[in-house]
């Protein structure tokens, strides 16, 4: 299944939930509403034509007006790739966890929460791990984050 066929297939089967976004230059990029994310992902994984069993990556992005969460999926059996983008408001971004579908998402979501401040619903362990435990200088990957002149390190 090449990219055109995959695009046609997704638009015919998931057209109501996934909308095509041409920003994806090389790969297929679809947008999904945050409330539909988990159900769509579940379907994508179990669809016998797609079988997106492999979770490549999850990255957050901050466009200063909104947050984005981009899920990169792949299928090891069908050898196809798909990107899903969730657009979140800049105030109180919340996204549901997909770790029940792909356990691999756990750390990626944790990292996104830590660096972008995108809250993850139903996440089992939302604690800091890249930054130190007492970090309170905001979310460093946000575009409006200004590096503090002096970072306090915790007393050991």
């Amino acid at each position: 299944m090449n990219n055109e066929e995959l695009k046609a297939y997704i638009e015919s089967h998931y057209g109501s939930q996934l909308t095509y976004n041409e920003a994806g230059k090389y790969d297929l990029l679809f947008e999904v509403d945050a409330s539909n994310l988990v159900t769509v992902c579940e379907k994508l994984k179990n669809d016998s034509e797609l079988l997106f069993d492999y979770f490549c990556n999850l990255s957050g992005a901050d466009t200063t007006e909104r947050f984005e969460a981009i899920y990169n999926l792949a299928s090891t059996k069908k050898k196809i790739r798909l990107d899903i983008k969730v657009i979140l408001p800049h105030e109180n971004p919340v996204v549901n966890s997909v770790q029940t579908i792909w356990p691999a998402a756990n750390w990626y979501e944790r990292e996104m929460w830590e660096l972008y401040g995108i809250h993850i619903n139903n996440h089992d362990n939302l604690t800091r791990f890249l930054l130190h435990d007492e970090w309170d200088e905001g979310f460093p990957m946000r575009k409006d984050w200004d590096a503090p002149d002096f970072i306090r390190f915790p007393d050991l």
């Binding site: 920003a23 994806g24 230059k25 090389y26 790969d27 990029l29 490549c56 990556n57 990255s59 992005a61 901050d62 981009i70 990169n72 790739r81 990107d83």
Partner: peptide, 28 residues
């Protein structure tokens, strides 16, 4: 535009998710 590019590295899949906003610096 944006792309998630991945290659086969010795430790598994190595990927870069790259977003460009048309300027000379990568956006993400």
């Amino acid at each position: 535009g944006e792309t998630y590019t991945r290659i086969e590295n010795s430790r598994g899949e190595m990927g870069v998710y790259l977003v460009s906003d048309g300027t000379k610096k990568p956006f993400r």
